[in-house]
Design a binder for these strands. Sequence first.
DNA 1: GCTCCTTTGTTGCTTAGTCAACATTTGAAA
DNA 2: TTTCAAATGTTGACTAAGCAACAAAGGAGC
Lengths: 191, 191
Amino acid sequence: MSPNPKELEEKLDPRVKRTRGLILQSFDSLLAEKGFESISVQDVTDKAQINRATFYAHFQDKYALLDYSIQKMFMAEIEKRTLSVCSYSPNNLRNLILAVVEFLSMMHSECAQSHQQFESLIEGTIKKQIFDLLSYWLRNSKVPTDIPATVATWAIYGLASHYSHMKKRPALEKFVDEAFPLVAVNLEQFA
Amino acid sequence: MSPNPKELEEKLDPRVKRTRGLILQSFDSLLAEKGFESISVQDVTDKAQINRATFYAHFQDKYALLDYSIQKMFMAEIEKRTLSVCSYSPNNLRNLILAVVEFLSMMHSECAQSHQQFESLIEGTIKKQIFDLLSYWLRNSKVPTDIPATVATWAIYGLASHYSHMKKRPALEKFVDEAFPLVAVNLEQFA
DNA sequence: GCTCCTTTGTTGCTTAGTCAACATTTGAAA
DNA sequence: TTTCAAATGTTGACTAAGCAACAAAGGAGC
């Protein structure tokens, strides 16, 4: 039984979960008050009340932390819709598309200044998350899933990116209704 | 230079401070939802997200935790009035009396049901705190301080207990104005 | 150029927290 | 009363976090 993404984190040592939680909290609150580049590792560990050396036991540097933070935010969006522990269905796919579109739109509006700067980092991170999730959904398939999963991943991300960059965004539902079949067609065999 | 009560806790290992903080938070929130007797050590450690064995590394049992919790609440009352790092003066004494009276009155109203049950525990704990604080205030005296400090401690606690049990409480200020000179007279030599 | 100060990573040793297992105790239901 | 589940304390071996000290890399100002 291939482990789902959520289970992996839950059986970590409680100290590790706690420490990462503290680092993340501290980082997020620092991001709210100043730009990413002006945040030092010191700042993060001071606010988190952990030792600086402990930080390096968990993250290579602050860029790895940013990456982790993005992962967590996206994961939260996924779990809000209970998509993390399930299998492929057209309805789940539709909700996944919705989640990605909303996530990117949020990034665009809330992290306005930093978004440009980190767009490619976000893209890489999120696409990996989408791909892993789709692979998990298709875990019981007897045929290889990596090609269809790749196509779907890029299509979904592309759609979301397109939507979040539009000057005049159409209604979310309408947009997704229109886009959905084009993605679903590649996954029909798994329904 | 005798250490003041606050400094002692601040140079503890960060892990110790964090763990005790988590235990205390958990305990206080459990107290708000159910009675002390129905709270198990399990409950506390589960909510605090620490191991049960860790609890026993810090507290002998849940009664010791209750004691610690009371100490902390009282300490907060003292620090709110900046009385923890200073020396004896009539004005500080007056504020100390105010603090004790308000603390006991609060205990009476907020922890109504449990107060009766734990009154003697509270009394012992708080009197020790008052005594230690007074001893710290008089740390530079050339004459022995334990007798006057003992008398003042019992007097202050007695006054506060009396006030908090009264059916018709007089105005706080009026009560303290009346009581203050009777306590201060024993400490005049240190002014 | 140079200096001075801050931040970055890294390391070896110490201390605190985790875990599973165990013997006891307790309390409520059969 | 007996039984059974749950809570209490305790232990020893393992793992994570803290700390101080270090070399090295910027960056700001002279």
